[in-house]
Amino acid sequence: MQQFYWLTKVSKKQLYYSLTATVLALCIVGGMAWNEHRQTKAVADDITVVRTAVIGVAAAAQGYTYSGEVRGRYESQLAFQVSGKIIKRNVELGNVISAGDVLMQIDPKDIQQTVNSNSAQVYSAESQVRLAESNLNRYRQLYEQGAVGRMAYDQYVNAYEVAVATVRQASAQYAQGANQLDYSLLRADKPGVISGITVEIGQVVSAGQSVLTIVQDGEREVEISVPENRIEELRKAQQIKVAFWALSNVTVDGKVREIAPMADPATRTYKVRISLLNPPPEMKLGMTAAVAVLGGDSRQTVTIPLASIYQNGDTPAVWVVSGDAITLRPIKTGNFGDGTIQVLQGLQQGDRIVTAGVHKLKEGQKVKAGGESL
């Protein structure tokens, strides 16, 4: 009986120790498995999936495109030579005019009164001449007969000469007044088209104030505004192409005719006139034109999305995928496009760059790449 009790007691102890060892072994194995799972998950979490693209390089000529407006080569701003109130306007915008046409008229009443006054002065001066001439003839006879002295005769000679000079003066004033009366009519000196009207009937204008703009018949050209840092490139341009927004599929060659010697004080750009070598007949004044200026040098360029640019201070850069990591590489950019930008230096054919989410990445970060070629 004591032997059975001892065996039972021993069996309970062994069972207790066996269960305890089994639980400890399970805990150790489970902990190792959980730790391994956590490390695997952490490694997986460090790998970021990014959208990428492979660079394909192409040769392209450097150039810029400017918006412009069709203008006439010769444009005249007309003004009255006298002041007054406008009482008549004979033209509208777009009217075709001929040389000598009366375009506007100002009220001539005051000028007419001045002309009338000058005319009366002419009549008065002519009367004085006739009187001085009669007196001179009488005194000449008396002088020849010895009835008067030389001094009295010379006085009448001088009076006659003064009267003649007064007639000339009055006639000149009358002619000047007549010219002023003619200036009350604004006439076209060249044939052309009315492109601007700045006054209306009833408005009082001063002499020299611009009232009309006329584009003279003849050559048409395109005016563009060019920033100061591209003037030399424009001078050296090998080719200039001009397209029109309203005329699809129409492109003509152009050449630089004139570059303004000074920049516009407001925009700080230079006005440039582009002559059209074979202008289309459908082209009209004021049309919007696109002037493409192509340089002579051809460079290896590629166009990438703007979202690919990572701005590092003042230097633009892109993330380049090398193996399974990324590296920041500085680039030199060119022209902007519709959501794109041209890269002139820094990328080579076959480079894979990140095209989205570039500001969330870090140098040397592990990534999983995918995408298409550019």
Rank of each mutant, 00 (worst) to 15 (best):
V50A: 01
V162E: 08
E363V: 07
K241I: 09
G192N: 09
P316N: 06
T8L: 15
L19V: 12
P316A: 13
Y143P: 02
C27L: 15
D314L: 10
F244S: 03
L306H: 04
F4L: 15
D253A: 08
E126D: 12
W319T: 09
A59V: 05
Q216R: 12
L347A: 03
V204C: 01
Q141C: 04
V272R: 00
E133Y: 05
R168W: 05
I304Y: 02
T340Q: 11
A99R: 02
G94R: 09
K12N: 10
F80T: 05
V162T: 12
A237D: 06
T40W: 04
I55P: 03
I240E: 00
V250P: 03
Q14H: 10
N312Y: 12
D182Y: 08
E221L: 12
A290G: 11
K271G: 09
G370E: 11
Q342S: 13
E219I: 09
G177C: 04
E36A: 12
E144K: 14
I201Y: 05
A33V: 13
D314R: 04
G94F: 08
I86Y: 00
V57T: 12
S322V: 14
T327L: 02
A170S: 14
V293S: 04
S184W: 02
N335E: 15
M283W: 04
G334I: 05
G30T: 15
T166W: 07
T340Y: 12
I326E: 05
L277T: 15
T355Q: 03
N249L: 09
W319D: 00
N312E: 12
A58Q: 13
T301G: 01
V102P: 00
E69R: 10
T251A: 08
R38Y: 09
N90P: 07
G146S: 05
K366P: 02
V122F: 02
T267D: 04
K368D: 01
T114N: 14
S206M: 07
S83Y: 04
V242P: 06
T340M: 08
N135V: 08
A317D: 09
R140C: 02
V70I: 13
V215M: 01
T198L: 06
G100K: 06
E200G: 14
V96N: 12
R89F: 07
V272T: 02
R268M: 10
Q14E: 14
Q105W: 02
V211N: 00
L234A: 06
G146M: 07
Y183P: 00
P305L: 11
Q342M: 11
T333I: 10
R220H: 11
R329K: 15
G63D: 04
K271A: 09
M262V: 15
T40K: 11
K9D: 07
P330Q: 10
A356Q: 13
V354H: 06
S184G: 13
V320C: 01
V211I: 07
L344K: 06
A125V: 06
I304V: 15
D101F: 03
G350N: 07
